[in-house]
């Protein structure tokens, strides 16, 4: 009984995540499924969505900078 309820729950979580992922693709956010899951979990735990978006962008920019640096170093 309880196992079937758990199974239900898991499947619905899965579905929700699928939908969100699809939306994210539609909106072209370029988040992979894992990152999206992490983000959704954070939001559910009360993080401000706009701040989180800022974080993601910040990290992306940081990454770009790092990659450029590496390229320069490699050269």
């Amino acid at each position: 009984m309880s196992s079937s309820r758990d199974a239900d729950r898991i499947s619905s979580v899965q579905q929700t995540l699928d939908i969100l992922h699809e939306m994210s693709q539609l909106l072209n956010t370029q988040l992979d499924k894992e990152t999206l899951t992490t983000c959704v979990r954070m939001i559910e735990s009360g993080v401000n969505p706009e701040a989180l978006a800022a974080v993601i962008q910040e990290l992306r920019r940081e990454n770009g900078r790092l990659v450029l640096q590496q390229d320069a170093n490699a050269r």
């Binding site: 729950r9 619905s12 979580v13 579905q15 929700t16 939908i19 969100l20 939306m23 994210s24 909106l27 072209n28 956010t29 988040l31 983000c39 959704v40 939001i43 559910e44 401000n48 969505p49 706009e50 989180l52 978006a53 993601i56 962008q57």
Partner: peptide
Amino acid sequence: LLDQPVLLRKQASIHFLQSLAGS
């Protein structure tokens, strides 16, 4: 998504996606 019972803060999630897309 609105049919799904799991998430409590669907709106926040969508807002997150939107701000990431619109930025």
